[in-house]
Amino acid sequence: MRLLVLEDDEILLDGLKVGLQMCGFTVDAVTSVADADAAIEADRFDAIILDLMLPDGSGLDVLSRMRRSGDRTPVLLLTAKDEVADKIAGLDSGADDYLGKPFDLDEVAARLRAIVRRGHGRAAGLLEWNDISLDPARMSASRDGMTISLSRREFVILQALMETPGVILSRSNLEEKLYGWQEEIESNTVEVHIHKLRSKLGASFIETVRGAGYRLRTLQ
């Protein structure tokens, strides 16, 4: 899942970026309201984390601009203010969830997964397709109770495919999920990891749609 994080404290921002990457997210980080607006305009994210107090404005402004322009990307607010009134104001401005500082990384990750899941209209935490189920919280897949361990990138690709079963995802779609802005895209990463996934899950689990991309194969 691709995330945008807006936070002006550099150590916290770095912590969120590294920590959430470890939880299987691809994270882009910005430190100002202006940068956040630009990033939201230019890219698509699965979820956005907004800090409230920033040198050039408030995360709430970013949120209301997003909602006004019809952007339905799930938003998690992070703030040091934890008065009820602030929480209400945040949620009423269109935020999907709210977390007070300081917080636990796992909780941030869990809440992000939850708001994204609800955004897709799913209630269950596990993603399932045919006989494979994917547990985003553990970044692992399983078949008949047998755990199949996945690398971070394998997990990201599999998660992207399982979230939209039947939909064809292009190579660049998948690359977007894999890489943040600062990361250099290696030319054949997607192919390499699709290959690895097929060897772990069975050759027919993911099918290649020539000239278009990849999707999960539907069993006849």
């Binding site: 404290d9 150590i11 916290l12 770095d14 912590g15 969120l16 590294v18 920590g19 470890m22 800090d51 992070l78 040091a80 500082k101 300081p102 917080f103 636990d104 990384l105 796992d106």
Partner: peptide, 12 residues
């Protein structure tokens, strides 16, 4: 905010 930063970095 710095506490949140400390906590996430410690968890990492």
């Amino acid at each position: 905010t710095p506490l949140a930063g400390l906590k996430t970095q410690a968890q990492i």
